[in-house]
Amino acid sequence: MTLAPLPSILIEPIVRVALLEDLGRAGDITTDAIVPSDGRARVSLVARQAGVVAGLDLALMAFRLIDPTLSSSVMRGDGSHVAPGEAIATLEGPARGLLTAERVALNFLCHMSGIATATAGVVEAVRGTKARVIDIRKTLPGLRTVQKYAVRAGGGVNHRFGLDDGVLIKDNHIAVAGGVRTAIERARAAVGHMVKVEIEVDTLEQLAEALSFDIDAVLLDNMDPEELRRAVALVDGRAITEASGGITPANAGAVAATGVDLLSMGWLTQSARALDIGLDHLS
């Protein structure tokens, strides 16, 4: 499936804030002092590691916001696998603009490509099963839209984007409500017919109780593979099953083999390692 790019209206405010943070109160005093105003350059964004590209649109927007006259040519777009030394895109134009936007552009590109690469690794680990790899809401403030986009670039899919687009009843909700039944009934009574209701369970006993009510999905939290197999059998197709907690590329295959529908991981967006991408001067 072709990866749909994020609309410019969504990403421009994010890139603009990052540039304003970097430019501070006086702009790029280093580049303005050293590089002639009429100097021109041609540069290339180059992968230093193998991985999956994500965030190229944000990187290119950073350059364009600094200098709209800069031109670019894309070799490997978002969702593409790249090898070490492979060029992702080239840019040409006023040298000051290229150097001033460089760090912000690379921050987005390296961070998002790291998320996409990590996601792709887990997707590969569960290949051959029905399980899909998903993110959660453990995202950096202000970057949720682009981090979740990066998960899609790596072959994953998205969980809810916020508190307003899906009900997820967690242990603290159950505790405050006074029980599973009350929590589910109150949720169902409050939301519209388009809103899904998911409930988190820690034990098979909790799962059995939850299945006696009207739910769409169950989050099976921190269960080992044997518990997950028993949980999937107990659900028997009556709800979507999501495994969460402690899932890594090393154990993702074993978790997926239990028959769960979804594997969710907060670390994909919260702490995935950036992909090393650099800006090489060509001329």
Rank of each mutant, 00 (worst) to 15 (best):
A175C: 02
V201H: 11
A208H: 04
T269I: 00
P7M: 04
E92H: 06
V104A: 04
V218T: 06
A47L: 01
H281Q: 08
T145G: 06
L23C: 00
A233N: 01
D236A: 08
T129H: 09
L70A: 09
A62V: 01
Q147V: 02
R40E: 14
G162C: 11
R40T: 13
M75T: 03
L163M: 12
G24K: 12
R40S: 06
A101S: 04
A153I: 09
G79Q: 10
V104C: 07
V123C: 14
L65E: 11
A4R: 15
V104Y: 10
S113E: 01
L263H: 06
L275V: 01
V235W: 00
D38C: 05
T129K: 14
L207T: 03
Q270D: 05
G93P: 09
G51T: 12
H111K: 05
Y149R: 13
A183T: 09
R25C: 08
E102N: 00
F108L: 09
P225I: 04
G155I: 06
G39D: 10
R186D: 00
L10P: 06
G192A: 01
E12Y: 08
N222H: 09
A118Y: 11
G192P: 07
L91P: 01
V122G: 07
L282I: 10
R160I: 10
H193P: 06
A153S: 13
G155R: 15
L234K: 10
E242P: 09
D202L: 14
E242G: 02
D78N: 14
A177G: 14
A233L: 05
V191I: 15
L143V: 03
L228D: 10
M61I: 00
Y149H: 15
S37A: 13
Q270E: 08
V126F: 11
C110Q: 15
A272W: 08
H193E: 08
I11M: 06
G245W: 07
L219P: 11
A177I: 09
P94M: 07
D135R: 12
I169A: 08
D22Q: 10
S44N: 12
Q206I: 03
T117G: 05
V104S: 06
I134S: 15
E200C: 12
Y149D: 07
P225E: 13
A274F: 11
T129I: 05
A47F: 03
V255K: 05
G178A: 04
D202W: 15
D165A: 14
G93K: 08
A190L: 14
N158T: 10
A116V: 03
D78G: 11
R188L: 01
H173M: 08
M112H: 12
V201C: 04
L262N: 02
V197W: 05
P94N: 09
I34K: 14
A217I: 07
A208L: 00
G79T: 12
Q49G: 02
V157D: 03
A105L: 05
A256Y: 13
L58G: 10
R238Y: 02
M112W: 04
E102A: 04
H111D: 00
T139E: 08
A26L: 07
A257S: 13
I66A: 04
V52I: 15
T100N: 01
S264T: 13
G97T: 08
